[in-house]
Amino acid sequence: MRWELDPSPSLWKVFLAYSLFVALALLLLGLLFLLYGVSPLKAYGLLLSPLGDSLGLAEVGRRTIPLLLIGAGLALAFRVGFFNIGAEGQLLMGAVGGAYVALFLPPGPWTLPLMFLLGGGLGAVWSGLAAWLRVRFGANEILTTLMQNYLVYYLVVYLVAGPWKGQMVFGFLYTDRFPPEAQLPRLGDTLVHWPTLLLGIAAALGLQLLLFRTPLGFEWRILGENPQAARYLGLKGGRLILLAALLSGFLAGLAGVGEVAGIHLRLLEPAQISLGYGFTAILVAWLARGRPLWVLFTAPLLGLILAGGDALKLALSMPFRVVDVVAGLLLLSLIGAEALSQRRLIWRR
């Protein structure tokens, strides 16, 4: 008995593999809920509760915005073979850049565009650094981008506790409130800052076109599919990787600006700016299978999980870490199902 590759699995088999793994993930998650001391059914209900009312849906929407921007960029980066795990840090860099413009430059109609520009730029610098270290020195980008997350984390903590600490706030660790010129408009009473949402949708569409309708996209896809072939064709692999990394970092930076200018209206502790968007967006991109357009569907799905995690936290005072558990299990079941469906069991040696 042994495993063999199944080059063309039937749809039925793919469906079965995914159902099996999703069921296993739900089972394991339920077990964890039981061990924690809550009824799994109640926990699952809460996880899906944001779907029930318009307030919940707005919460999902608000969390979808950064996931859209980051996910679209990561879908591109993964496709090209740049494994950017540092979107979390790039988002925080974006928040820092946005906050700098909002707090220290004279306000005016140029403030918001400038915030997005500087925030995105800093995000791009941050991911570009990892790409450069990989291209120039061969440093594994999974580890460097991950370490960079910690670096910005401490940078933000330093800024809000030290030099950028607000004049008007006393016991709290955050900056002063942004001036009105640096605040993004929202939809009604919700926290959905729609300009960033539009940027996210535009990013998904734009990257899809770039990847599938331009010569540059063609080169990117060759490089991601088969680096050796790319070398024989004389493609400049280093430059292609750097460009994809810069783009994904830029989009993550934009997401960071959106969070501080659209929701918090100030720079504050890093754990409050990003609720693990960087890691969750990896799932968004992985689910989208290297197609930036598909992010339009996968980002709301993960937005729902983040909103549900918040509901669990509020209702059962469960640590927000529960989102990590859900994300980890989902990612595992995804790659497991993918691998299982591409294989078949042969009853002979």
């Binding site: 964890l32 299990l329 790659i335 691998a339």
Partner: peptide
């Protein structure tokens, strides 16, 4: 066994382990 992507599997395990320990260790 499944011959899945080792990097992604490891990252997922890192998240799962950190999350589960935070949850169960409360």
């Amino acid at each position: 066994f499944l011959r899945a992507n080792q990097f992604v599997a490891g990252l997922a395990l890192a998240a799962l382990g950190l999350g589960a320990s935070g949850l169960l260790g409360k």
